[in-house]
Every structure is written in structure tokens, then in C-alpha cells.
Design a protein around this nucleic acid. Structure first.
Lengths: 163, 163
DNA sequence: CGAATTTATTTTATACACAAAATATCCTCA
DNA sequence: TGAGGATATTTTGTGTATAAAATAAATTCG
């Protein structure tokens, strides 16, 4: 590397960026989790599952859910168990392939989700009240770029530590 | 509200922004967790505690740690327990106030942390490789603005749902 | 002084999270 | 057809996370 000082600088800038991203996300997530608990009887992960099912407007398998939500396969099992107990989703075992199962919103689940989603949107909007729409668009663009960068450069992590 | 359509629009934009923030953070965190597991015997929360102690260049109480790391009070107990078992940190009971305890890096903990921190910085930088320094500065500024907005407007969440 | 309050930490119970192993079913191809 | 491999899900074990209750020590104030 031609200019080690500049490189050093860039590393620090990357780290600062990551730490700020982390603290911003965690700050907002905590507030949402807290207000969710106060108003509804579902957790954020449970809400995320309901959201995915509503968005898919139909049924999803366990694997599809765990992929969409970027969580481990085994994790979904427990979350679905609780949602079934609460009567918000139901399992369906198709004839043609007994390995898989379709998870579907119940009528109750669908109704509850719509109620929650509306308030969720309101809350997020309130938390972002001091950002202009232009701010948000810029932020989205940069976050997308960061996400793509991380996906693109993931392979480098396990190779040689320098260069 | 004078223009309900515009408001509706803004809500959607806020939600999109939040979802992208969430997925970006989670994407990067997963990759870091994974590479951390492969190279070291500490988890990300444990690393965060070590980092906070190193940064404080001295001792911190349990409450200070849980406040700095924005996690619950009871949570820190278990993390510290494991770090003590691993010999990376130590507990100190001062004479003057037996309610509190100081958590301090051991020599081993300090050495291991520096080793990990160096690679951590490298990895983050690699993940952000496609972002220019200007991108990162803009991103930091917007994230700070978002964070401050969330802190500032937190109170609104529990009040009336409209306006 | 001593009872109320505050502060610091741990404990408890519940719910995610992961990785890895186990199980069950399907598919393929000789 | 039936053995080997692939896929879908659950189970297991460990480590965060939370909120709320319990414990313990310090502080305050009548």
C-alpha cells in the first residue's frame, strides 16, 4: 500500500461508521420493542414473522421464513410454536411432501397483524420525525450501498488478513 | 393535517428507511459474528464488554457497563461471569461501598482484546470496501441525525396515536 | 438513632439467537 | 427396488436479551 497513513485513516472511519450504525439501530429497536410490549402481546420477532406472512399473501414454509428473516433454521421453530399457541398462525401439512409444512396466518392473526402494523408504521414515523424525506432517501441509498458492499466483500474476511 | 396523502407517503418512507437500516445492520452483524466465532473464543457481546473496558482505560461498575452497552442490568451479570471464568476480566470489591464492584481487564484480557480489535477493524473495513470515505461521513451524519431524532421523539410514542 | 428510600447487583422466568446433530421424508439412479 | 444423497424440520446446548422480583448495602431524614 502506497500510503499507510491514509489507509489507517480509512479503517478508523469504517469502524466509526459501523459503531454508529450499530448504536442507531439498537437505540430504535429498543424503543420499538418497549412500546410493542406495552401495547400488544407479541414480540418483535413474532411481529416480523406475521409481517412476512402477510406480505407473502399466502403460506410460507419454515425454510422460506428463516431465509427471509435472516435467522437460523432452528430458531423459527420456537417462534412459530408460540404463534400457533396464540392462535395467530396455523401449520398445514401437505399430502405430496410430508417433510415440509405451510405456515399461514389465521383470520385472527391477520386481523391482529393489521392493527399492529398500522401503529408500528406510526411509531417509526414519529421516531424519524426530525428527518426530512430527502434525508431518508439519502440514508436508504447509503444503507443499500453498505449492505451490498458487505455482501460483495464477505469472501475477503476469511482470506489473508493483509491486502 | 392539511395533506393526508403526503403524510401517508412520509410514513411509508419512514418504514422503508427503518427496514433497510435493520437489514443492513443485521447483515453486517451476522458476518462479523460468524468470522469472530471462527477466529476467537469470544462472542460479540463479550467483545463489546472488553472494548468498553479498554476504552475506559480502567475499571467500570456493572451499572456503568449496562448503561454504556445499552443492555439490561441483569444481562451484564452473565456476560461478566463468563469473562471471569475465561480469565479475561476480574471483579474488585472496594471497601467504601460494598454494593458496587469494579470490573477490570486482566493482563490476558487486555492482550487478547488488542489482538481481536485489530482484526475487527480490518474486517469492518473490508466489509465497507465499496463505500468512499465521503459516503461513510454522510452515512455517519445521517445515522446520528436518526439516532437523535429517535431519542428526541421517544416521548410521543406513548401519547395519543394521532398527531 | 432507626425506619423509609434509593442504589447496585443478582436471580428468575421467558423468549430469542446460533451452530450442530438428529430425524424424517423425498428423490435419484443403478 | 432399494441404497445413497439431498432437503426440511426439530432437537440440543450455549449464550444473550428482556422485565420483574429479590437481596443487600448505603443514604436520608424525621
Amino acid at each position: 500500500m502506497a500510503d499507510p497513513e491514509k489507509n489507517e485513516n480509512r479503517e478508523k472511519e469504517s469502524l466509526r461508521t459501523w459503531l454508529r450504525l450499530l448504536s442507531c439501530e439498537s437505540m430504535i429497536e429498543q424503543r420499538l420493542r418497549s412500546v410493542f410490549r406495552q401495547h400488544f402481546d407479541v414480540t418483535l420477532p413474532q411481529f416480523d414473522v406475521l409481517s412476512e406472512l402477510e406480505h407473502a399473501s399466502g403460506a410460507l414454509t419454515m425454510s422460506e421464513l428463516s431465509h427471509e428473516l435472516m435467522v437460523s433454521n432452528g430458531n423459527i421453530t420456537g417462534v412459530i410454536d408460540r404463534l400457533v399457541t396464540m392462535g395467530l398462525v396455523q401449520r398445514e401439512r401437505p399430502e405430496h411432501d410430508r417433510r415440509i409444512q405451510y405456515i399461514r396466518l389465521t383470520e385472527k392473526g391477520s386481523a391482529e397483524f393489521r392493527r399492529m402494523a398500522e401503529l408500528h408504521e406510526t411509531w417509526v414515523n414519529q421516531l424519524f420525525a426530525d428527518l426530512s424525506q430527502k434525508d431518508m432517501q439519502q440514508l436508504q441509498a447509503l444503507l443499500l450501498k453498505a449492505r451490498n458492499s458487505a455482501v460483495q466483500n464477505e469472501a475477503r474476511l476469511n482470506q489473508g488478513s493483509s491486502e
